[in-house]
Amino acid sequence: MRDAARSKTTWLTAVLTAVAVLGYVVAHDYIGEPNFPAFVAGLAGVVGVLLPAVAILLGYKSIADDRTSGRLTLTLSLPHSRRDLALGTFLGRTVVVLVPALLALVVAGVVGAVRFGTEGVLWYPWFLLASALFGTAFVGFAVGLSMSTTADRWITLGGLGGYLLLVTFWGGLQSAVLVVLHRFDFAVLQNMPNWALLFRLLEPGEAYARLVRAGFDVDLAGLYVAEGAPLYVSAPAALVLLVAWAVVPLAVGYRRFRASDL
């Protein structure tokens, strides 16, 4: 972790995060409605695209790089277990991803409240928590990926593919599957069956939006709060899904890492 804090990439991504978040504060003047919930919704949109990229960038090579370079040999010659190493890396990377992001969001929140009013401002800590969990989910994914293989191309492919699938294409993919299953009756997209809602909520970004929605009555994740939406797309379900996104890839990656020869 100390290493991560010293690396140039870390600082670069921290600056990037700050610029993007604080830049949005300025941009919201032009593109959003001047009230606080709308501001938070816009901010969530920025976080939803930015934080996964930062988390994957800082995490996807963490253990694999140390392993191929031989730094891991030195670490594990000392009385450290692979489990401690995996957990330490995960925690360390989580901190370097979240600290700059949360600092920037706190500043943005204060400025936002001053400029756009304080409606719903008491829920802002909830928004920070949801953002932190969202970022953690992607750190878990990235570090898990980093433990699962040492082949550079698989790691790069996994990192890039993970981002594209989980952030960019999931919604489209879900819609496509749904439309095919309903024999190209496009009307189904306007009125999704309940199982399809869960399938869509599996996307970390959607789960995150659902959590933000729990605090702010904004135009995010409206699908899941429609009348008659089932329990498994409620905010607690979204919470569970995000935790699973952090833990499951980490556990799978660790199992592979533990069983393999260095």
Binding site: D3, R6, S7, S69, G70, R71, T73, L74, S77, L78, P79, H80, S81
Partner: peptide, 22 residues
């Protein structure tokens, strides 16, 4: 009991590399 075993040994391994920025 890898960790316990390694508590009592000093190792100069092969194919290591030192930590960066330290």
């Amino acid at each position: 009991e890898g960790v316990t075993a390694r508590e009592r040994i000093g190792v100069l391994p092969e194919g290591y590399s030192v930590f960066e920025r330290r």
